[in-house]
């Protein structure tokens, strides 16, 4: 981070600071990681999801975000919790399913906030969970991560920290990761925007469709998605978490919607959210939901 940025951020932090980690929180977002959001010729609803993602990125930066903290369900792992420590992640990801589409080839160039990532790994370990420090050249970066960071911060002004989504981890562990990153932000004096990259219902359409043919795969899935989004908008976060398992069973929610537990762990989202967009992404449900600081 450069000095100018730090000065600006310290001002913002002081303005926003109240107690605990609150002053280190610049907002949170739940957003999809499907690459259709990058399509050159999108369906209208894809374009809306894209525009709202970009808009939320502006809100996060305006709220003084210094670093994007990202958990993407597409970075799924099975051992411990991997924390990315490579200071510069550069390359071109060609998605193994969407390679024939313009949005399937994704150049990326990400800077890691290494100080925060190191501290996060320590905080994770302090809770008794395993943090696996990941720093390997050519390490595969997932599509969701590239989509989200590209839309939230198109000019690449913010560094990122990222953690993997362990397929076996329960909501308690995922929530702990969210708490740990706020403790880490507090320890190193960083104001962070917390990003959960996850879809909602996941009824993928098992056909090659045109953008105009996209629709949420079943009425029941859409009903579930809208019910959950309605509860989030009303600030009934706890109820969503109670319904989570049933939602996962009945609408095959992306990674059982455990990504929400990550946001819950920050202690900052148990209040009304701004549901900015919702729509189908190849049959799955995707929404852009913002929690202001």
């Amino acid at each position: 981070m450069n000095d100018t940025m730090n000065d600006t951020m310290n001002d913002t932090v002081n303005e926003g600071a109240t107690t605990g980690t609150h002053g280190h929180f610049a907002g949170a977002v739940l957003m999809p990681g499907m690459p259709q959001l990058l399509a050159a010729d999108p369906a209208p609803v894809w374009a809306e999801l894209t525009a709202e993602s970009k808009h939320v990125g502006t809100l996060l930066r305006d709220a003084g975000a210094e670093t994007l903290v990202v958990l993407s369900t597409q970075w799924f792992t099975v051992l411990g919790h991997q924390v990315q420590l490579d200071p510069r992640l550069r390359g071109v990801r060609v998605d193994e399913n969407w390679y024939d589409f313009d949005y399937g080839t994704m150049p990326y160039d990400l800077r890691t906030d290494v100080e925060l990532a190191e501290q996060w790994a320590k905080e994770i370990e302090r809770t008794g969970l395993e943090a696996r420090r990941t720093h390997y050249e050519h390490f595969p970066i997932d599509t969701g991560m590239i989509v989200a960071t590209g839309l939230l911060d198109p000019a690449d002004t913010l560094p990122v920290v990222q953690v993997s989504c362990n397929l076996y981890a329960g909501v308690e562990a995922i929530s702990t990761l969210g708490r740990a990153v706020m403790d880490a932000a507090s320890a190193v004096g960083r104001r962070v925007a917390v990003v959960a990259v996850s879809g909602l219902s996941s009824g993928l359409i098992q056909q090659w469709i045109t953008p105009g043919e996209d629709h949420v795969e079943s009425a029941r899935n859409e009903e579930w998605d809208r019910r959950v989004l309605g509860l989030l908008a009303e600030g009934r976060f706890g109820e969503v978490m109670e319904l989570r398992e049933q939602y996962a069973r009945e609408a095959q929610a992306d990674s059982q919607l455990r990504a929400l537990a990550f946001l819950e762990g920050t202690g900052q989202v148990n209040r009304p959210a701004d549901v900015r967009a919702y729509g189908p992404l190849w049959g799955t449900g995707g929404a852009v939901v913002h929690w202001a600081p």
Binding site: T73, G199, S202, L204, A248, Q252, D254, S255
Partner: peptide, 11 residues
Amino acid sequence: LSANNNPYFYS
């Protein structure tokens, strides 16, 4: 050949 499954959607 690829595998038509999806661990993060739990399918």
